[in-house]
Design a protein around this nucleic acid. Structure first.
Length: 155
DNA sequence: GCCAACGTTGGC
DNA sequence: GCCAACGTTGGC
């Protein structure tokens, strides 16, 4: 792998299911359960170990960015797709040709405060951000370097 | 809980 | 390949 500019990402999680505090406690976690091809492709083809990730809380009282994680592994098959008892089981996938890949993410920091979706939406400097596009539901998405820096400065 | 937006599935 | 039906996401 040749050196390259650092890439930045945003990953959504419902805090009731897995929160930034859960990641802090566990230190590192396999990002399982992604069942969207575009999100998978970002993990498989875009992410490199060391890339930085905004941890976003979705589907909760105050949606927003709550912490920072780093990509800890290359992509590998999501074990939950092979487990018939898992809600993420995919009978259409096989071990020979796994459909779903994931990366591990490692806890880096919890933000002192939540940078709320509302606040991001109101910020003209973030126009065009994937998260803010109408109807955008992508749970793993790229963040432009300029947007990353701008958001960091909001904390 | 509602519902708009989106992605997937499957009949044709 | 089209598209209606269905399931999911996620803000509100």
């Amino acid at each position: 792998m040749s050196p390259r500019e650092r890439h930045y990402w945003l990953m959504k999680s419902e805090p009731d299911a897995f929160s930034i505090d859960d990641l802090k406690r566990k230190k590192q976690e396999a990002w399982d359960g992604v069942r969207n091809y575009q999100a998978r492709n970002y993990m498989r083809d875009g992410m490199r170990v060391g890339d930085k990730v905004f941890f976003y809380h979705s589907n909760c009282a105050e949606p927003g960015i709550v912490g920072i994680a780093t990509v800890a592994t290359d992509a590998y098959p999501d074990p939950s797709q092979f487990d018939p008892r898992s809600k993420y089981f995919d009978p259409g996938s096989s071990r020979d040709n796994p459909r779903w890949l994931l990366v591990d993410v490692k806890f880096a920091k919890r933000l002192k405060r939540t940078i709320t979706l509302k606040e991001l939406q109101a910020d003209a400097a973030l126009d065009g951000m994937v998260l803010l596009r109408k109807g955008s539901r992508l749970s793993v998405q790229p963040v432009e370097a300029a947007h990353w820096e701008h958001i960091l400065a909001l904390e």
